[in-house]
Design a protein around this nucleic acid. Sequence first.
DNA 1: TATTGTTATACTCTATAACTATA
DNA 2: TATAGTTATAGAGTATAACAATA
Lengths: 158, 158
Amino acid sequence: MTTNEPVPGFTEALVRLAHLVQQVYGEVAREHDLTPQQAQLLCLLIGGPVGMTELTRALHLEKSSLTGLVDRAERRGLVARVRDSRDRRACLIELTGEGTRTAVLAHDGVTRQLETLAADLPAEHRELVASAIGGILAEHTSRTGRAWSAPGPHRQGG
Amino acid sequence: MTTNEPVPGFTEALVRLAHLVQQVYGEVAREHDLTPQQAQLLCLLIGGPVGMTELTRALHLEKSSLTGLVDRAERRGLVARVRDSRDRRACLIELTGEGTRTAVLAHDGVTRQLETLAADLPAEHRELVASAIGGILAEHTSRTGRAWSAPGPHRQGG
DNA sequence: TATTGTTATACTCTATAACTATA
DNA sequence: TATAGTTATAGAGTATAACAATA
């Protein structure tokens, strides 16, 4: 009985929510003089340096697109390329001092905005929504066959 | 007691969900040889012709950006500009025949993908999630002070 | 040979500022 | 004056293909 008639507004709600989150990201990014893509990149790096190949998977970008994104962020002093000591072809992208400050501000800004918008939602509903989304993400992960590291509010302690 | 300690994973889940929806949109768009932005535009027009100014609000774009987006979609035969009989400055954007076919396919593709990913979610949870999202969207609308028309799975019968 | 990342190229997306035409 | 939309311009984002260096 998991597939009765689908709630008509369900996918519409998901799409609208996604659009809203994008909008929040854009607004917060702009407050810090970032593009949304740069904000995503920075938030993704808060947990520590990440290799280019892993970043292409996390951001769903072609490697050449990522090269350009990192180039521009590097030019603005937000990130730096460091050589990978174990593979001389590879490099890791890490936040600079300014990049770290900006990343944390952007991350906190997005989180605060979303928390504010969801302030009226009872705690148990929040947990249910988070759990439902977790299920959707897990289903997607199992279908695409690899783990997933999203940009944005990150899991600390990695 | 609406603002206890926030569920830590809540905003993270929202952000990851937004990213997933974006990804689905991108994949479906590509299947139909569209950019994600073109797919958004097309889906937004399924309900009928929409004016440029309203489109800038729905898509959160500057008017000149929208001009370019519509230009390219028009050049590809997906949409057409029609004069507004009540205001000779304004025009309405409407789907062409091919545009309508493509828009419906893209819309259905996104819906189907998301429904598939959420297939394991019990119906009552789906309703609760949709309702919770509705509350977040309503809160945002009341803060920004205007109604909102999202691209993507649309509300028919408007 | 396969993988990592860059370069070259072309296009789309986006914003700002200045503009035209209409209200 | 204000609004609807376009044009000009510049930069950012993205993909494809070809390439260099390393594994």
